[in-house]
Nucleic acid binder design. Structure first.
Lengths: 236, 236
DNA sequence: CGGGAGATTGACTGATCTCAACCCGGGTGG
DNA sequence: CCACCCGGGTTGAGATCAGTCAATCTCCCG
């Protein structure tokens, strides 16, 4: 049951049964999950599935970070969210039976555990606790998506960039030198903010001038979180 | 069980049990719904609940149209979606237990049937079919929200307005004279598109010049759906 | 050393927002 | 009956945010 993923040995069953939406499955149900057999490794920039693909199951992130994005008609990507260890991808398509409406790509080496859709659906019907957890998951995402809609529609690029930096801090934390623990290209940052690469670059320089952040290549150090929150007009 | 809502008499139980997410409840469960007792009438521009309110139950639209929107920090509203007969409002907050993240206001006289959250949750746990339906509902909305994010982030105001007009047609249909069967102020249209009122007005005039639509006050006649779809860069 | 991807900077353009004025129709009070 | 007001709609002018295009730079890699 022990499995080598990257540098650490992790008990996969332990992980799935405590850190994911499968936390309320009973031992019998857990036995049905194809844990090791369903786990697939991806290298940085590997695509897990593409927009338009038929998905029939949950991809549970065990290790790594995956970006989830939609490609607009003009070829520009909009990053919707990131999935990190413990998160689930592909549940929307699995539940609705529609084709995937997003593409998912590893931005660092990753391991995903695939759980077939039929199995998930049977759990939903047999385990009310699990159904509620899944509903909560969907509803949480829905809330975040709705927030994002208002943000993009009403805030300036400057405000949104500040907000994105704060969200990244909250989601991925800082290392002991206050650097964001996620590495994104300027273009990815732009696709997250919903703007042009050049705009992100200019605004990052501004923030650096104003001593809100420090830049070391792709590594971003957060110097003044409070000020960034203010610039981002965040209500938290 | 017959109830006067507006000009028509409708069998409420029949409506709830065929047109809403409660369609897979069994007769026993249906009996638990506070149908007539839970039904409340609203006048145009009445607020059902406000952002920040504690919601604990589903509001099921029986009659009328409700706009669901978020107010940005600068006081401008962003309309997320409309709820029409058969639709549910407030399920996100009910499920997650969070405060409402949207305000909901009747844009025409409406009747809503309130179903307590505890009852809904008990159905989720006891009725797998219902749980799946609810999940599908949430996932469908999630898909639409994600589409909207990409649209707002990448499309021009002109493209978005064209798209909104088409979506309104699909959602509310046209009357026998090809007028949209929903009446919105220019400001509401702007809040839906995510732009300024003046921009909407100017673009509507353009569309009129180009013989894509006709304007009679708030009533909008769709003349050339195909062209609007093209302008909106819609992939359908 | 050449090539390529990503990052940066500058100049220019233009879509869209804001501000302000004005119109129009309906309702209201004197 | 009329003057006034008010909300919503419309139009114009000017300001500006942010996108595009193009040139350059910096690494890193083979």
């Amino acid at each position: 049951m022990l499995r080598n993923i990257g540098v650490q040995y992790v008990d996969l069953r332990e992980f799935i049964s405590t850190r994911t939406v499968f936390r309320h499955l009973n031992p019998k149900e857990l036995d049905l999950l194809p844990l090791d057999d369903g786990t697939i490794n991806y290298k940085r920039s590997d695509i897990v599935y593409e927009e338009g693909a038929r998905i029939n199951g949950f991809y549970c992130v065990v290790k790594g970070i995956i970006k989830i994005y939609k490609t607009g008609f003009d070829g520009k990507d909009q990053i919707i969210r990131f999935a990190k260890p413990g998160d689930i991808m592909g549940f929307r398509s699995t539940i609705t039976g529609e084709l995937a409406c997003t593409t998912t790509k590893a931005i660092e080496d990753a391991s995903l555990c695939f759980v077939p859709g039929d199995l998930v659906k049977s759990f939903v019907k047999s385990n009310g606790e699990f159904a509620m957890d899944l509903l909560q998951l969907a509803c949480n995402e829905l809330g975040e998506s709705n927030d994002l809609i208002t943000d993009i529609a009403q805030k300036t690029v400057r405000e949104r960039l500040a907000e994105v930096l704060i969200h990244l801090k909250w989601t991925f934390n800082l290392d002991n030198e206050n650097f964001l623990q996620i590495s994104l290209t300027r273009e990815e940052l732009a696709n997250l903010v919903g703007t042009a690469t050049e705009s992100v670059i200019r605004l990052l320089s501004e923030f650096k001038q104003d001593r809100l952040i420090e830049l070391h290549g792709r590594r971003i150090k957060i110097l003044d979180e409070a000020k960034l929150i203010k610039i981002g007009n965040m209500q938290y």
